[in-house]
């Protein structure tokens, strides 16, 4: 079990080392990165916004329920929605969802290319396939996913507003006051750090699963599933480590 882990970890590091190389033709890598930015960013916008609005709404409603008959001021609802969203929910939930959507897609795309001999064909042409197939995805993800996370945080706070103000849980002024209270800029930095790290994890782990896939469609399905499972586990582990480091 341990040796198996070391085998995969070593092969993962070798893949990353090979992928970090000077592009054969910069324009081709640029084009591929742009395509990936569109696929990952624009392609995930709706699902990310949809999830974020409900996360904000549920956080607001749940916290309003906790505050019933308590001495804690109601404007704290806005404060809690903002901080829980920025520090934890926006980066983590968004990236867990993206691991499912983007990660499985990356594993299936690269794995399909491996099985259909597209990767062999590129290798024989002289293309560094690890670099061409993986780096544009990683670069696109570490740029676009933090932007998605920022959008998710904004939409989540909006969701909290929509769930609490029109429903009469809290007034408009109270919610806005909560949003403006005790704001710490460092939390936004923490959110961005998490988004970048999670983006790196979900793309490279998924690419690894696809790049080394063997067998047929069943194995490709397994690789796709493993990409999501391992990405999710590593994202949660990284979340804990980042929290420890950045809050110590």
């Amino acid at each position: 079990m341990n040796l198996n882990f070391l085998y995969h970890f070593g092969r993962y590091l070798l893949m990353i080392r090979t992928a970090i190389a000077r592009p054969e033709r910069f324009a081709m890598y640029w084009r591929e990165t742009m395509r990936q930015m569109n696929d990952i960013g624009v392609g995930s916008l709706v699902i990310v916004a949809l999830i974020a609005v409900f996360i904000g709404a549920v956080t607001a409603v749940q916290f309003a329920y906790q505050l019933q008959d308590s001495f804690v001021p109601k404007y704290y609802i806005g404060y809690i929605v903002r901080d829980s969203t920025i520090i934890e929910l926006a980066p983590t939930i968004t990236c867990l969802v993206l691991a499912g959507k983007v990660g499985s897609n990356i594993a299936a795309e690269i794995g399909g290319m491996r099985q259909k001999e597209h990767i062999d064909a590129m290798e024989i042409m002289g293309v560094n396939t690890a670099a061409y197939l993986i780096m544009p995805k990683v670069i696109a993800a570490v740029i676009v996913i933090p932007l998605l996370v920022c959008i998710a945080a904004f939409v989540s706070i909006l969701g909290g507003y929509l769930a609490s103000v029109p429903g009469g849980l809290i007034t408009d002024a109270e919610y806005i006051r909560g949003l403006r209270s005790f704001f710490v800029e460092y939390n936004v930095f923490m959110m961005i750090v998490k988004a970048v790290v999670f983006a790196y994890i979900l793309t490279t782990v998924s690419a690894y699963q696809g790049y080394y896939v063997k067998g047929g469609s069943i194995e490709l399905g397994q690789a796709s599933t493993q990409a999501v499972v391992y990405s999710d586990i590593l994202i949660l582990l990284a979340d804990y480590i980042i929290a420890l480091i950045l809050t110590s």
């Binding site: 090979t18 259909k116 001999e117 597209h118 062999d120 064909a121 290798e123 024989i124 042409m125 002289g126 560094n128």
Partner: peptide, 20 residues
């Protein structure tokens, strides 16, 4: 090494069984 092989591969063409 890999880099030197890529130089040789620039002079190689291959037709795959499934066309790829």
């Amino acid at each position: 090494n890999k880099k030197q092989r890529r130089a040789i591969r620039m002079e190689v063409g291959m037709l795959f069984q499934g066309s790829a």
